[in-house]
Amino acid sequence: MSNPPGLRDSKKAATRLMISNVATGLFLERGFENVSIDEIALEAGVARKTVFNYFPRKEDLVFDREDEGRELVRQAIAARGEQPPVLVFQALMRALVDEQHPMFRINRRPIQFWSAVADSPALTIRARELQGTLADDLAAILADALGRPHTDPEARLAASMLMGTLVVAYGEALRAFRTKRKVGEALAGVMERGFAGVNAALAGTPYVEREATPKPPRTSRSR
């Protein structure tokens, strides 16, 4: 008998995570350019084809959490009720920081990871590409929430400012860790300043303010 869909999906997710963890360990130890797909497959105990089935590009073995981030944002905005989508996004980011989600957890591992990225031209280029892609995806999610086209300039402005805020805030948190400053304060300080700028730029739009409930039309009374 074949495995039920839920079990198959769980096994696939576990295999994908295992391959990614093996690859990341090798990259941190020896450098991205110095590790081949064949070596990753051998270390992970899988076929070379299996690695490519899960990760079409070698760089994807390094940046493998963006889908999780997109899904968290989609779920939060889908359940937003009457709350403006940008404010929902900001609340989600604050919650992820407070709960020390891996996306915002700052310790020696992320320091090593981003140092490896900085040392690799290919990974540096891919990181910049992903930042643009994620901003485009966020703009589409925000626009969809209000029934607007994906080209809506207000959605694109909001998304680019939000992504820029997170990138700068995360970078400041890494620097705070290296210099033994309070990481949480460094991260939150930049993030809140950036969020305030987004809210000011989008003031008067339904991205940051609730849409006014239309009043029922007045009816004239006959005398």
Rank of each mutant, 00 (worst) to 15 (best):
N34M: 06
T50H: 06
N53H: 15
T50R: 09
L92E: 01
E99P: 05
V86F: 12
G81N: 03
Q75G: 04
A95S: 15
Q75W: 03
V62I: 03
P84A: 07
E71A: 13
L96P: 00
E29Q: 11
R30I: 09
V46G: 02
R65M: 13
V51Y: 00
F89G: 00
M93K: 09
L26Q: 13
N53L: 12
P84E: 07
V97H: 07
E68Q: 15
G31H: 01
V86E: 11
L92D: 05
A47K: 06
F52M: 11
I77H: 05
R30F: 14
K58F: 02
Q75S: 08
M93G: 10
R94V: 14
F89C: 01
E59V: 10
L42T: 14
A44R: 08
F63D: 00
E43N: 13
E68D: 15
K58L: 02
F55C: 05
A79E: 10
Q83A: 15
N53G: 04
D98S: 11
D67K: 14
N53D: 15
F52Q: 10
E39Y: 08
P102S: 12
E43Y: 07
E29F: 02
Y54C: 08
E33P: 00
V88R: 09
S36M: 02
F52N: 13
V88A: 07
V51L: 00
N53I: 04
Q100A: 09
E71G: 08
M93I: 15
F63V: 08
P85K: 06
V86Y: 10
A47S: 12
H101I: 03
P56N: 04
A47G: 12
F27H: 03
R65A: 13
F52L: 14
Q83L: 15
E43H: 14
A44G: 09
L92T: 01
E29V: 00
R30K: 12
N34G: 01
A78M: 08
D64I: 07
S36L: 09
R74W: 02
L42R: 15
A41K: 03
P84K: 10
L26R: 01
A91C: 08
E59G: 00
E59F: 06
L87Q: 03
F63I: 03
R70W: 13
I77Q: 00
R74Q: 11
L92V: 02
R80N: 05
A41P: 03
L26C: 01
D64L: 07
V97F: 11
K49Q: 15
A41N: 12
R70Q: 14
A44T: 05
E39P: 06
A47R: 06
E33I: 02
A91D: 11
V62Q: 03
Y54I: 08
A47P: 06
